[in-house]
């Protein structure tokens, strides 16, 4: 089925329900895999739900449609929530989520183009390296006179990589208004708070100075996300950055904002507690996990 780009008014309740299910999926995927990056993934659930539930144009029957919208997950370690969104959008089988990080799975520990070129435009993981690829895709879309948009997602710690600023320059220099960058500004990286490790503030001013249109929002408020995505799409002549002020591991109070949950895996009890905090919604069924101990 084809989802058209930003069709009609977004159903905010539907998107928040989807985000909560993406959180459930993410927690269960990472617990089942025994490793992964849960905090950043949970924090991106609201944005990912708005992209796949409303903003993006894609077609599961024609996944390589040349005019589809693209995602480049430059902070590739948060991929669990992306895989969950692909499954909840009907693009990959729900059962496949149980294979994440396993040998032979398409759902590699960091996104691998080789595994799923129709949905994963570029392999990513080494920070700073997805963003330039997004610019290249946008340049090629322009050359082909396609309306496709490119959504690049970046971590805040990732912005310490110099290459990110090279890419900011390129998008602005070429006036790539089909590029929309989302910065997951949760102020947490592996070693602690971003502002303590290597500060990136004042972030909005910096990105504006690089020639971008900048929107700052609460990255968990679906109405704000939808409004920012609309604003990005109607901003011409320059790329738009959405600075999403987020809370790492949002939705699971016992994990929220704690750097420990950048890369730790919840044990059985912590997983149960996290799922309880996120809650259930009878619109969705959890994906099956075979042979679960």
């Amino acid at each position: 089925m084809k989802q058209k780009r930003m069709q009609g008014n977004a159903d905010l309740q539907k998107l928040t329900d989807l985000a909560q299910q993406l959180r459930r999926d993410t927690i269960r995927m990472i617990h089942h895999a025994g490793s992964g990056h849960i905090g950043g993934a949970l924090g991106l659930a609201d944005y990912m739900a708005a992209l796949y539930g409303w903003a993006m144009q894609y077609d599961d029957l024609d996944p390589t449609d040349p005019d589809r919208d693209r995602i480049v997950l430059s902070n590739g370690h948060t991929c669990a929530v992306w895989y969950a969104a692909l499954a909840r959008s009907g693009l990959i089988p729900l059962e496949e989520l149980a294979t994440h990080r396993r040998m032979g799975s398409r759902l590699q520990g960091h996104p691998a183009r080789k595994a799923m070129p129709e949905y994963i435009e570029t392999s990513s993981g080494p920070l700073g390296q997805g963003f330039p690829v997004a610019n290249g895709i946008a340049l090629s879309l322009r050359k082909r006179v396609s309306q496709g948009r490119v959504y690049v997602i970046l971590g805040d710690g990732e912005l310490q990589e110099g290459q990110v600023w090279e890419a900011f320059m390129t998008s602005a220099h070429y006036k790539l208004d089909t590029i929309c960058a989302f910065i997951n500004y949760n102020n947490i990286q592996i070693d602690g708070k971003v502002e303590d490790i290597m500060g990136i503030a004042p972030l909005a001013d910096k990105i504006k100075a690089f020639g971008w249109h900048v929107v700052e929002i609460d990255g968990h408020d679906t109405a704000s996300i939808v409004a920012a995505l609309s604003e990005a799409a109607s901003t011409k002549g320059k790329p738009t950055a959405i600075i999403g002020n987020t809370i790492m591991a949002k939705g699971v109070p016992s994990m929220e904002g704690d750097a420990k949950w950048h890369g730790n895996t919840p044990n059985d009890a912590e997983t149960e507690a996290a799922l309880e905090a996120v809650g259930t919604n009878n619109r969705f069924k959890d994906f099956p996990i075979a042979n679960r101990a």
């Binding site: 895709i137 090279e166 390129t170």
Partner: peptide, 28 residues
Amino acid sequence: PERFYQMGIKESDMIGTAAGMAIDGQIP
């Protein structure tokens, strides 16, 4: 000229951008 892209003095960014163009069907 319309198929020529000046990338400035940033080699990694040039290579990454070229990869994106190739992924979308160009031969950079």
